[in-house]
Design a protein around this nucleic acid. Structure first.
Lengths: 190, 190
DNA sequence: TGACTAACCAAACAAGTGTTTGTTTAATCA
DNA sequence: TGATTAAACAAACACTTGTTTGGTTAGTCA
């Protein structure tokens, strides 16, 4: 009466692959790397997934699902538009630097790396970025502000954190998100 | 009396490699791709460069030299700190989206892709990013503004443009740089 | 003219790639 | 118990990878 054994190995496989894709990138991770990490032979992976590309696609889908839910959960209880943006930016930084490997893969692996599923991967990324559209649209801004470009700036600032964030020593993701939000919000010219 | 023939082929080779690295990425570009693009056999490349890694390093160095000079030239004649920042951001966007393949490689290929020269590539990137440090430091800002994080936000916003910039249809790099700068400068809360 | 060299070709090399095939083991279920 | 199936192994396959080696050609220079 323990039919979960089946899924457990499948989960371990996808988890190990996500960890490697997130830390080494897609092209630099071989099926042999993955098989070694999960403790099976290279060919055995193909019982669970038809190809390396499909494996990544599955990780991407899980990752986007997680990040969208996490972001929604962080924003939902808040009312003030600026509070909501801050919570969103914090969740963004968290997903990119700390959270599960699934979410980190989304920002590490570019859709270009998998021509076969490029459009799907782009669409998945868009689903996440779209969440910021409403966050920005709800801000009480002067009419001349370019909300589209503001959203792109916010997303860019968050994505970039992957390259400089340091888990120990520097600030926590929540602190970074808060400070980013304050930069956007406050008048910063004298 | 035409000893430049030698360098001309060398330049064509590095140029072709830069074009491919910028558009396809480092791992996805093979020496055979490069050799085909420049019109020689794969092995012939090794007369000019000792390895693929060294080829990338040379491109990186040229790219950083170009972008730093371009940025300096764009900023140098200006005096007002905000004008200088705007010129810098425009140059950044230009280098990432349009300019020579050399500069685009810097933002497309991550140092992680070349473990052998990772530290050198990171150092080269830093040389570029350092230029923004002085641009941000010279801004007349309220004392509570986190200049370090502001610089990271600006760099992130620029780097991100690679993923959404459209040469035709959308705005020109200069227009984007100007609007980005205005977003940073103006108070955007009501 | 003859030695020298820059620049390349032609062909292979060893290692690594994603993937497939046939087989085995262990658990499930009638 | 016996048939069935999930899940993996063992071994190879066809191909691509960066790179090396030895030879060839054309131009330079004393």
């Amino acid at each position: 009466m323990k039919p979960q054994r089946a899924n457990s190995r499948n989960d371990a496989l996808i988890e190990a692959a996500a960890e490697l894709f997130a830390s080494q990138g897609y092209k630099s991770t071989s099926m042999r790397d993955i098989s070694k990490a999960v403790g099976m032979l290279p060919g055995s992976i193909y019982y669970h997934f038809p190809s390396k590309d499909d494996l990544l696609l599955a990780i991407y889908e899980s990752g986007v699902e997680r990040i969208t839910e996490t972001l929604e959960a962080a924003v939902e209880p808040l009312v003030d538009p600026w509070d909501r943006l801050q919570a969103g930016m914090s969740a963004h930084i968290r997903a990119i630097t700390q959270e599960s490997a699934y979410t980190r893969v989304i920002f590490r692996v570019e859709p270009d790396d998998v021509p076969k599923y490029k459009s799907q991967l782009v669409a998945l990324r868009d689903r996440f970025e779209a969440q910021f559209k409403s966050l920005v649209d709800d801000l009480p801004l002067a009419p001349w502000v370019d909300r589209h470009l503001l959203r792109l700036m916010i997303l860019g600032a968050g994505n970039h954190a992957r390259l400089w964030f340091s888990p120990d020593g520097g600030n926590a993701p929540e602190e970074i998100g808060a400070r980013f939000c304050r930069l956007v919000r406050d008048s910063i010219c004298n």
